Simulated assay, not measured.
Amino acid sequence: MKARSLLVSMVIGVASIQLSAAWANEGFRDVLDTPAAMTELASRQLITGLAMAGKRIVGVGRRGHIVYSDDDGATWRQSRVPVSSDLNAVSFPSPRVGWAVGHDGVVLRTSDGGESWERKLDARMAQDSLALASSSGAESDPAVAPDLSFLGVWFETEEQGFVVGAFNQILRTVDGGGSWESWSDRAENPEAFHLYAIRAIGEELYVSGEYGLVMKLDRQVGRFRQLDTGHGGTFFGVTGSPGHVVAYGLRGHIMRSTDGGASWRKVDTGLSTSLVADGMTPSGDVLLLSSDGQVVVSRDNGERFAVVPGSGPVPNAASILPLNDGKSFVVGSGRGLSQQVLR
């Protein structure tokens, strides 16, 4: 398989995968050995993932920066993080326990609602403890192992969950990150396309990726089955509610299924810029964020979307999180974190 650059880097402006072996400058310190720098500007930099930890907002981003807010985004505090690798996604299965993932194979865990984090995996640890297998039928590529980068994370409980990423990497833990098992060979992704997101919708678990790839977990056989979306463009995320699945991505494309992924139809948004993140309000409205900061909302389970007045433009928009009041949301972009009103 020929190595491909990560499309997500083009869309949200995240730096390319950091390869510690490529650095030879005297005095260089590996990002895996360097804690994230403490700075008052942490919340003003690119935040690529947002999640609720109970009533607390937690955001993760570049150079290992993690921030949190207990007042709906009015003020932010910075977390203690043991690495300075770029982080991409965050998930909280409970108010206290959460998980964050990023480049260099980094997987972090918090047990205090995001105030401090511990390393549960990185690329060096993975090479020592895992057989990083290519998916079934794919040609082996020696560049895959150094390019271990995680782009999505989902945990069903505090102890059990999945991380997904570049080159069809899927890892699962059932013991809170004490050990990891590769599920790459349990995914119907023979070309080893990059996997950008993993999300539970009702009782079903979905993964989205390059070239129209959407997979759903077949729990009976323990395998991710590929779904035919009828679309060949990259999907950066999947969201929805039971009975209503929405996959979104490159150039504003949205595909929707109401039968568990058996069939799909295109939903027009009028946008030509890529959709890169999603969020759902307490009432079930679906918000999608474009890379230039425009937000579209659906109040009918993804059947129709309309642009939210006043949203955008901002550079390198990357994350969105509706607040519990149902009237506002937070956006992470190249200008940092900002709160907007949902009209």
Rank of each mutant, 00 (worst) to 15 (best):
Lys2Ile: 15
Ser9Trp: 03
Val11Ile: 12
Ile12Thr: 04
Val14Gln: 15
Ala15Ile: 07
Ile17Tyr: 13
Leu19Glu: 08
Ala22Trp: 15
Trp23Ile: 15
Trp23Pro: 03
Glu26Met: 11
Phe28Ala: 12
Leu41His: 12
Ala51Gln: 02
Ala51Arg: 00
Met52His: 13
Ala53Ser: 05
Val60Trp: 04
Val60Glu: 11
Gly61Leu: 01
Arg62Trp: 02
Gly64Asp: 07
Asp70Val: 11
Arg77Gly: 05
Arg80Gln: 12
Val81His: 02
Pro82Thr: 06
Val83Glu: 12
Ser94Ala: 02
Pro95Tyr: 02
Pro95Glu: 04
Arg96Leu: 14
Gly98Tyr: 11
Ala100Tyr: 07
Gly102Pro: 02
Gly102Asn: 01
His103Leu: 08
Gly105Ala: 09
Asp112Ser: 07
Glu115Asp: 06
Leu121Thr: 02
Ser129Ile: 11
Ser134Ala: 14
Ala138Thr: 14
Ala138Asp: 13
Glu159Trp: 01
Phe167Ser: 14
Asn168Phe: 15
Gln169Phe: 14
Thr173Asn: 10
Val174Ala: 13
Val174Tyr: 04
Ser179Val: 01
Trp183Phe: 09
Glu191Val: 09
Arg199Met: 10
Gly202Phe: 12
Glu210Trp: 13
Val221Phe: 08
Phe224Tyr: 06
Thr229Pro: 08
His231Asp: 15
Gly232Gln: 06
Thr234Gln: 11
Phe236Arg: 01
Thr239Gly: 10
Ser241Asp: 12
Ala247Tyr: 05
Tyr248Phe: 12
Tyr248Cys: 02
Gly252Ala: 04
His253Cys: 01
Met255Thr: 14
Asp259Ile: 04
Arg265Pro: 00
Thr273Gln: 15
Thr273Trp: 12
Pro282Tyr: 00
Ser283Ala: 13
Gly284Lys: 04
Val286Trp: 07
Leu287Met: 00
Asp292Asn: 15
Gln294Ser: 12
Val295Trp: 06
Val297Glu: 06
Arg299Gln: 07
Asp300Lys: 01
Val307Pro: 06
Val308Thr: 09
Gly310Ser: 07
Val330Asn: 05
Val331His: 03
Arg335Phe: 11
Leu337Gly: 00
Ser338Asn: 01
Gln340Arg: 04
Arg343Ile: 01
